[in-house]
Design a protein around this nucleic acid. Sequence first.
DNA 1: GCGACATTGTTTTTT
DNA 2: ACAATGTCGC
Length: 721
Amino acid sequence: MDISDVLDDLNTAQREAVSAPPGNILVLAGAGSGKTRVLVHRIAWLVRVEQISPYSVMAVTFTNKAAQEMRQRTEALLGIPTAGMWVGTFHGISHRLLRQHWQEAGLLQTFQILDAQDQQRLVKRILKNLELDETRWPVKQAVWFINSRKEEGVRPQHIPDTGDLTTRQLVRIYTSYEEQCKRMGVVDFAELLLRTLELLRDNQELLAHYQQRFQHLLVDEFQDTNSIQYALLRLLAGKNNFVFAVGDDDQSIYGWRGARIENIQQFSDDLSNTQLIRLEQNYRSTGNILKVANHLINNNQGRLGKALWTASGEGTPVELYAAYNEMDEARFVADRVQQWVALGEKRSEVAVLYRSNAQSRIFEETFISMQIPYRVYGGLRFFERAEIKDALAYLRLCVNHEDDASLERIINQPARGIGERTLDIVRSLAREKDISLWRAALDCLDVKLFSNRAMHSVQGFVKLITDLSKQMHGLPLSEQVDHVVQASGLMQLHVADKSEKAQTRKENLEELVSAARAFEYEADESETLSPIDAFLSHAVLESGEAQGDAWEDCVQMMTLHSAKGLEFPLVFLCGLEEGLFPHQMSMEEPGRLEEERRLCYVGITRAQQNLILSYAENRRLHGRENYCVPSRFISELPAEHLQEIRPRAMVSRPVVVSPKARVPGGSVEGIRVGQRVSHKKFGDGVVLNYEGQGSHARVQVNFERAGSKWLVMAYANLTVL
DNA sequence: GCGACATTGTTTTTT
DNA sequence: ACAATGTCGC
């Protein structure tokens, strides 16, 4: 048999991983070492050489995008369709299992999925119901509590009552949340995984069936798995199946949302006959870039250890620019982008990376003014837009009247005269009788609990939903969506409004209908689920790209997190300042600081040919001018591989006041930007800027308590600290 | 019930 | 600074 295309073009380590005899294998794949390639070729090896049926293979990733890529590349390599193969995200695969075994899992056949937004709204509602003060019980904290318990596999009844009042209260919230979800027939993201784990754990027959079916489990980005995902994997693996996990402990950047880097370290303890293979040859970056990356990541403790190397040359040195402020930083980047383009290179080969989204703004402004096309990644996805969520809420309510979350969302959208007052009457009846809002609304109408006006409005709403539900019956999916969008008045609402935003919303609603039509087209005949239920789940589970395929030749702008997995010939890594990167919130704990360092490592290793680092000495943040200290990560880089770029002469460098400027009574000698000074009234601060000479000299000081102020040197009477 | 002001918090993001 | 909530008055 010809297996040349399965093993050709692989290096020794890659080949070793791909052709390893069936067993539990952990591949430590450094950045740019051909991780996805190894996974795809491994599947091909199993099918072609080991003669494993594609139906016995399950491949799991974290994002839909990665799953799609794996599917495509596998198909291309194997030359057979992979439709019967289980390739997907942990959530997607769990969803599929729950749909198939909804009864055993204790769900409604038509259960729907709650996204993060909906979940937060629901918890908020519950806090109100329980009459808890939102300042003492912040919604976010309650959501975090619920999600992290679920990620640990802990149900409310598992939490012991230690008498701690805070815990007791949170458990109350968690319990109520679960009841509501059950009544409404919805599950959140964490629930998809936990419910699947429980389903298989508590159902020996089912477990045996799937253990028999999936002999090979392949996992991508293994360092990002959380406890439940890892448990699910081990459960499916059982004693007889094989796990092939690919990951990189140095690229674990999602600890804050439950990813457990420990899973990598535990792999060999938890599974039998494990083999560890390292992929250290990097095919992406130049030698200089790799040296800088290796040097930085060496500052982390407890790594599994890995040193990337490349067979290609040193390349150009990594550069470091010390900007005067964030405007200067952005202008510098824009200038260099134009130089790059002037050399005949593409803008789309350039990435501007930053720690937090707020930083994109100044770059956007600068790029606009210099007419450089750009594209910002991240932000609201298609199915998360308000108008889309409104339309989906109508559909969900029509399909399932018990869906309170959806009812709350659209009962007065578009406005039909049902306000808080009216809604409160419905809510209290629902709570009292423990029924859904929909039924409560019907009951309220029956016993005439509303004022005349409200009565009329609610009747109108009830009729609208009842009619829509009836009319939808038997229509093809896209027509159902179209009809609901029209008849609900949502479309009219935006058509009537001539503003640009409303026009976009209108177009988005039209796009939703197109999406439904496309979905209809590829709908699986074997699905037992109705098209509309399938479409609604699809919308939540695959919320789509944030920005459409506006693929001109654009500079790519994104956070470091969203850059993972991508590569660019020219990379700018910006805002390397203490407090910003590493972020203030992560500087205290050593563990979190190490994650920031890994994030920096991820950023550096995105670069193929050129890497330019930058920081600003001053930065306006939350409306405050701040004097910034360069990031500790800069000092952790090898100086001999860094080339500092001298700022232009115009930009303020530390100013030393000449002896002439000395003012009686004020000790001004040595005042320069960044100098700490003290003022009688304003207290301590840092010099931000300086202008003028002699008695006209003015100095800008950022006081810790009083904020930023311009002071005349002659009167300020500053003391140098 | 709706629009106008005030208050608040501000890392990262997928599913 | 600024956006996204929440509160208040009509």
